[in-house]
Write a protein that binds this DNA or RNA. Structure first.
Lengths: 195, 195
DNA sequence: AGCGGAATAGTACGTATCGTATGGTACATT
DNA sequence: AATGTACCATACGATACGTACTATTCCGCT
């Protein structure tokens, strides 16, 4: 076996196929959007281009519907399961990438006006409050009627395991930006009083 | 003026040039590494390729040393300052990208053993504890002797404005993974007792 | 003076990522 | 049959990214 260079996207696809069974790229896309896509954007074209790549490595199989839309259905192979297991048994040491344009703007806010800084902080606060509310709503959606549907296991794992980190992150962000708003507001009012 | 498509990297370069004055790509690299690079990795080749691109747009100027290493020194133009101001006055609405391989592994941890999950959680906890300690140390480095050096303003803004969010994030991550370790540890011990 | 290693500084190149634009298919409604 | 809309898929070009590699300068040592 050659030295396979698998990316996070590769393991995302392998993991979803392992949990949900044979899936089309569109299925994968739906699962991702409802879960990890909340804070880790995988462009949907990736979910179309990655499975064929994995098929070439023998980690998944590809079957094509013979009629209608002739969708491509991918399924994980024993080799794929093995690669996934190896990855899961070797905890990643890579640090979190936290890419936030709002934070980048704050980093340079000294180059702009006090008003701009306040405006930025208010906007970011609103964004994070909205996200926090959305996560709380998602958290509340436990065990809806209708029984276990397709993709249900994945959504359950999202809610049970991963969403809590999202909640903590958004909570921290709300606290942080609340502070920034308070400081920027005070500075702005001081300037106004002097001027 | 054409419709310029500027990325986060573009504004990072413009902002650093605005604050620190004329700089070589290497200078930019040093400033980034000491600050934002802590959680937002800009590959160093970007800091070499982006400035020429901005020069082509007229947002920065390029001067080349005539001897020795013939380093390229870039400086922001009035047009560049203007573009930067426009960006700072228009708060970004883009959500945070939180890309964490450890979290991805946890999302699929149901496909692996309890031991693997515990191992993963312990590793992540250690990583985030280390990062939190490093941030606290950085926070403590306020106002070292030697007066304002090159790049000092940028480092001060990092410490004063942006680092606090890093501290909050790492604090949240430590709490989160502590929980995961506790749950995974309990599950593992239960299995051991039964088996 | 000359050597050698560390730190500094820059480039080349192949692959992955990403977003936009666009094009088909199924199906419900009228 | 015509229209609209959700579903599904791919092409393509621009960046982004990481690794590997090269070159220059500095500095301590002999």
């Amino acid at each position: 076996m050659s030295i396979e260079r698998l990316s996070s996207t590769s393991y995302l696809v392998l993991g979803l196929l392992a949990r949900e069974g044979p899936s089309t790229p569109y299925d994968l896309e739906q699962h991702v959007q409802a879960t990890l896509g909340n804070f880790w954007s995988f462009p949907h074209t990736l979910l179309y281009s990655e499975p064929p790549r994995l098929a070439a490595l023998g980690l998944v199989t590809e079957r094509r519907e013979t009629e209608g839309r002739r969708r491509r259905v991918f399924a994980i192979t024993p080799e794929g399961m093995s690669a996934l297991s190896v990855w899961l048994d070797r905890p990643s040491g890579a640090p979190t990438e936290l890419r936030d344009p709002g934070l980048l703007q704050l980093f340079f806010a000294d180059l702009a006006s006090d008003e701009a800084r306040l405006h930025l902080a208010e906007r970011q606060l609103a964004i994070h409050e909205a996200k926090l509310a959305a996560y709380r709503e998602d958290e509340r959606q436990e065990r809806r009627p209708g029984g276990p549907q397709r993709g249900q296991r994945t959504v359950e794992h999202w809610r049970g395991e991963t969403l809590p980190m999202g909640l903590r992150y958004e909570g921290a962000a709300v606290d942080f930006w609340t502070d920034v708003v308070a400081k920027a507001g005070a500075a702005t009012r001081k300037k106004a009083a002097e001027g």
